[in-house]
């Protein structure tokens, strides 16, 4: 079966599995579950799988998408449970369907994050963060292929909101996933560069949902 898409979660301890290791883990999990992934032809055959927007190590997700092909037919409805049963802790397959949108059309990512402050009051920080990210432009230095460059990250932030929690500020945002790509790690980086007093002691992120340009859920 061609053009299949898997939706899965990568949370808990599994967030530390790198993209490359995840591809390998997927390959083995399919084999454990008794599914035969279709391999490419040629000198060095490899399974034809591809994951949309590889996650950085340490970032969790409830909305990972992976395209794959299978040899032979199978009942797609049973696949998520069968795969989940043979996954490492933290990887849960939630859906499997025939591909709908092309990965290139994936435009926005909804993310949640936590900025941890060990010594500063979360309430105050939340207010200041809201103000900081409301600025019309946020120009930071960014490593590019051609060395250090200046870049305004503001246009890549569609929505952003902060809320005080226990020793942490919770972030909820919709950011541009492609063209331009905004790595969520740049949010605390911007603070470190432009307003160190607001930079958190630690920050972590989780992807919640993928969207098309028109904010319909990407499938």
């Amino acid at each position: 079966m061609d053009k299949l898409r898997l939706r899965f979660e990568k949370t808990g301890r599994a967030v530390w599995i790198s993209h490359l290791d995840l591809m390998h883990t997927m390959q083995r999990a399919f084999s454990r579950a008794g599914y035969a992934l279709k391999y490419s032809e040629g000198f060095n055959p490899h399974p034809q799988i591809s994951i949309a927007l590889p996650l950085s190590v340490g970032v969790g997700s409830y909305c990972e998408l992976m395209d794959f092909r299978l040899n032979g037919d199978t009942a797609l409805a049973a696949l998520p449970a069968r795969l989940t049963a043979v996954m490492p802790e933290g990887i849960r397959v939630t859906d499997c369907y025939e591909q709908v949108n092309k990965f290139a059309l994936l435009k926005y990512l909804e993310i949640r994050g936590s900025f941890e402050y060990d010594e500063r009051p979360a309430g105050e920080m939340a207010e200041e963060l809201t103000r900081f990210f409301a600025q019309p432009e946020i120009v930071i230095e960014k490593k590019t292929k051609r060395g250090l460059g200046q870049s305004d990250i503001k246009p890549a932030i569609r929505e952003i909101a902060f809320e005080a929690g226990e020793g942490e500020v919770l972030l909820h945002a919709v950011i541009s996933a492609q063209e331009p790509t905004l790595n969520p790690a740049l949010l605390p980086d911007a603070l470190r560069q432009l307003k160190p007093a607001l930079a958190p002691d630690f920050a972590k992120f989780t992807r919640i949902e993928n969207y098309l340009e028109n904010m319909q859920v990407f499938r």
Partner: peptide
């Protein structure tokens, strides 16, 4: 610590 070290998955457990 984990974001700062090489190959963090070897320190987390949780394998199949």
């Amino acid at each position: 610590i984990l974001p700062r070290v090489q190959k963090p998955a070897r320190y987390t457990g949780g394998e199949y």
